[in-house]
Simulated scan of single mutants.
Amino acid sequence: MSKCTPWFVRCIKPNVEKAPMYFDEQVVLAQLRYTGMLETIRIRKLGYPIRVRFHTFADRYFVLLPDQFNVLGRRRDDKDVCSTVLSKINPKWALDWQMGMTKVS
């Protein structure tokens, strides 16, 4: 997306009720399938890697973690958040990712 000029943005809604701090896996999964994100992920896994800085990854995905990582907006070390997201949410993901010096790849 950074190389083109997108004219729309698709937002993933965490739940149908629009309730704060509530995450419905089935609703999110259906949206990801519909938008083609799962296909994009499959293509990336075939050999087109993505490298994301710890800070960017932590900002995007820390909401998936328990409240201990999100107390009044203060989080632990970004690298720690990244490794926790990848290992706790789905232990199989930890095998597909590598932690570098500054990025997750």
Results as ranks from 00 to 15, higher is better:
Leu46Lys: 14
Asp96His: 09
Ser87Tyr: 11
Ser2Ala: 06
Phe62Met: 07
Met101Tyr: 06
Val16Glu: 15
Val52Gln: 12
Arg51Asp: 10
His55Glu: 15
Glu25Trp: 02
Val27His: 15
Lys103Thr: 05
Thr5Lys: 03
Asp78Phe: 01
Met1Cys: 01
Phe54His: 13
Phe62Ser: 03
Gln98Leu: 05
Gln68Glu: 12
Asn70Arg: 13
Gly100Trp: 07
Asp77Ser: 07
Gly36Glu: 12
Val85Leu: 02
Gly100Cys: 10
Leu64Tyr: 01
Trp7Gln: 07
Met1Gly: 09
Arg33His: 09
Thr102Trp: 09
Leu29Tyr: 05
Phe8Trp: 07
Tyr34Leu: 05
Leu72Gly: 02
Cys4Ala: 10
Thr40Gln: 02
Met99Cys: 06
Phe69Met: 04
Pro49Gly: 10
Met21Cys: 12
Arg10His: 11
Thr56Tyr: 00
Met1Phe: 04
Pro6Met: 03
Arg51Ala: 15
Thr84Ile: 05
Ile89Asp: 02
Phe57Met: 12
Gly100Thr: 06
Glu17Val: 00
Pro66His: 12
Leu64His: 00
Cys4Lys: 02
Glu17Phe: 01
Pro6Glu: 06
Leu65Gln: 01
Lys88Ile: 09
Thr40Val: 03
Asp77Cys: 02
Phe57Trp: 06
Asp59Asn: 11
Pro91Ile: 13
Pro49Met: 07
Ile41Pro: 00
Arg60Lys: 11
Leu86Ile: 10
Met1Trp: 06
Lys3Asn: 13
Lys103Cys: 13
Leu86Pro: 03
Met37Cys: 08
Val16Ile: 07
Ala30Asp: 12
Gln26Glu: 13
Met99Asn: 07
Gly73Lys: 03
Val81Lys: 02
Asn15His: 04
Thr102Gln: 07
Glu17Ser: 11
Val16Asn: 15
Gly73Arg: 03
Asn90Gly: 02
Cys11Thr: 08
Cys4Tyr: 13
Phe57Asp: 12
Ser105Leu: 06
Gly47Val: 09
Val28Cys: 15
Leu95His: 07
Asp96Arg: 03
Val81Met: 02
Lys92Ile: 14
Leu38Cys: 09
Leu86Met: 07
Lys92Thr: 15
Pro6Tyr: 05
Val104Ile: 14
Trp93Ser: 13
Asp80Asn: 06
Gly73His: 00
Arg75Ala: 04
Asp80Ala: 05
Leu46Gln: 15
Glu25Met: 13
Lys103Gly: 05
Cys82Pro: 01
Pro6Ser: 10
Tyr34Asn: 04
Ala30Met: 09
Val85Gln: 03
Ala58Arg: 07
Thr84Gly: 00
Val104Leu: 04
Phe54Val: 12
Met37Asn: 14
Arg44Ser: 13
Arg60Thr: 05
Gly73Tyr: 01
Arg10Thr: 09
Phe62His: 07
Thr84Trp: 07
Asp67Trp: 14
Val71Arg: 15
Met37Ser: 10
Val63Ser: 10
Thr84Tyr: 08
Phe8Tyr: 11
Ala19Glu: 15
Arg51Tyr: 10
Ala58Phe: 01
Met1Tyr: 05
Pro91Gln: 10
Asp96Val: 11
Arg33Glu: 13
Leu46Ser: 13
Ile41Trp: 00
